[in-house]
Design a binder for these strands. Sequence first.
DNA 1: AATTAGCACTCAACCCAAGCGAGTGCCAAC
DNA 2: GTTGGCACTCGCTTGGGTTGAGTGCTAATT
Lengths: 351, 351
Amino acid sequence: MSNSSQDLNERSLQLLKTLVERYISDGQPVGSRVLSKDSALNLSPATIRNVMADLEDMGLVHSPHTSAGRVPTVSGYRLFVDSLLTVKPLDVAEMARLHQGLLVPEDANNMVGVASRLLSELSQMAGVVTLPKREMVCLRHIEFLPLSHQRVLVIFVTNEQEVHNKVIVTDKVFTAAELQQAGNYLNAVYCGRSLESVRLAVIKELQDDQERMNQAMLDAVKMAQLAFESEVNADDYVLTGETNLMDFSELSGRDHLKKLFEAFSQKHDVIHLLEQSMKADGVQIFIGEESGYQAFDQCSLVTSAYSVNDEVVGVLGVIGPTRMAYQKIIPFVDVTAKLLGAALNPKTTAP
Amino acid sequence: MSNSSQDLNERSLQLLKTLVERYISDGQPVGSRVLSKDSALNLSPATIRNVMADLEDMGLVHSPHTSAGRVPTVSGYRLFVDSLLTVKPLDVAEMARLHQGLLVPEDANNMVGVASRLLSELSQMAGVVTLPKREMVCLRHIEFLPLSHQRVLVIFVTNEQEVHNKVIVTDKVFTAAELQQAGNYLNAVYCGRSLESVRLAVIKELQDDQERMNQAMLDAVKMAQLAFESEVNADDYVLTGETNLMDFSELSGRDHLKKLFEAFSQKHDVIHLLEQSMKADGVQIFIGEESGYQAFDQCSLVTSAYSVNDEVVGVLGVIGPTRMAYQKIIPFVDVTAKLLGAALNPKTTAP
DNA sequence: AATTAGCACTCAACCCAAGCGAGTGCCAAC
DNA sequence: GTTGGCACTCGCTTGGGTTGAGTGCTAATT
């Protein structure tokens, strides 16, 4: 039951490869006769049947029933994508489409939407993109507006033009003028630094030496602390083309489809799955049950982190049936991630 | 082929009513025997068959095939909801759930999300709520931040704590100080007025008497004009519980489901449909094809506008199969709309 | 020892016919 | 106008027969 590629001779691997390719393109269990013709090796169906029996013993392929051909198992796909697959370079038209879509820099949220739409459109499956992590962006402007009952509205602008806001509750009532002064102070001191570094600096200030600050400064820093505490980016993503998934018969079982779409709208599991790809770099693939979520049993997920200034800020990917054209999707996700990263980089894209 | 309730005697109507009720609860075509037992009228199946034949002639019911019992047609449902239906008062538990969910006032966008979730959860169908119209909200604070290349980031706060932003392109470069001054001026003059009235006032200023304004004021007003022009609220809605719809066999046909979900994600048609309910007040119902959109052929939509200070600001509703429990859903949508309106009213809900 | 041809066997898929059952329409009786 | 009776329709289910693709095994071939 071992399945490392060492245990297999060249020929078996070659056959596994053509089997997977054939199954991906046809969706039908592939039998020995077809395989015999499809593979360049000049072997009779009988020989191939022997090899298939071996592959089945190793858990790489599986027969739905006695007289059907073979279908790749998860391990089979895994071996295929890890060491057998020959990536196709991107189609020129598709490449053009990507460039065109991601060239004009805009508000980051819009870009994310565009990227997701491109992913789903060009793959004919579902596209997903997480919103960029906020810690990686830098503070440009912050200000406070008074609300009723000791509540204060914090507005801050990051990068070029992204606006965020949050309501905090303070321990005393501030006037508009006091709040403005606090904003001025914070802008003067922290402007241009990354949100995360500001958050840490503010905490440090409060611990270290409150003596050397006057009351106004202290208030300002306290508010900043409230504003940025636990302000991990409201984990969210943009998902498009979900409906494309309904076209795949392997996913269209009633309750399966429901589980899948429920997972999409609860977002929780998807986020968790995507976050796993933040660490690894390059393209990451979850095949079928590998994801660990029942809803994605029959799905594969091809993801890649995207980075701004060599700093990973988010993840994007394609969700489809396990039977997907990995040779095309892998490079496609790869370049999309790179293009999105580049498009989000404020330095390279200032208009 | 006329189908006004005048053409029918009491008994036929009574029978239609029990037929619809029965069909709604069972989902099976209902035959004469069942109807004979279900209705309080003491009639034999044979008599009922005669009545059914009449109803069928009038297009109120329909037989899927010769030996199958009757099913209400769209006109049948229409007659039912218009004049036969006895609304059930809301269940106390449900009422409590609604109150509990919509009592704590928050950011309007959150409230809309909560309302949508309540709608879908309690109806076991899909809930939809449009975002409140922006024109109805009043300006609380506006300010400008310089970006590169004559672009200016406009940030404005409405009502209690809602923050909006937009990038405008100006005809000359402004310094941060100039922009701040412009903001101060606009805040002083227009704060507290509704966005729509500000928009109109600004246009008027520019037409009427530019002479009595100095350059700074003129610049400020010009920017305000850019900021608010065509700023109709980005038409959008929150839809939840779509997956509930997959449980209804009448909707779960593969391509039907796909069309439906595509309509949901393109949003366009749904928006248009909901907008039709803005004008009418009270609960509005679209049954099956009445909506005019193919995707909603098999669906019914029960909607109600919701208002703040007697001003309609949005629409909410429930989407489900034509075979839905109108007696429950109608009052349910009604009170939800009222509660949401009340919860959004800044005056009654200041915390 | 590896490969191949031959052969019996398996099993989903398709088709067709029969039987069932729910329900109707119509007619004649009340 | 209402009802019981009866023939009829039609979808749904069941079961048997056939087909065809594909396998596993064995014995012959290289």
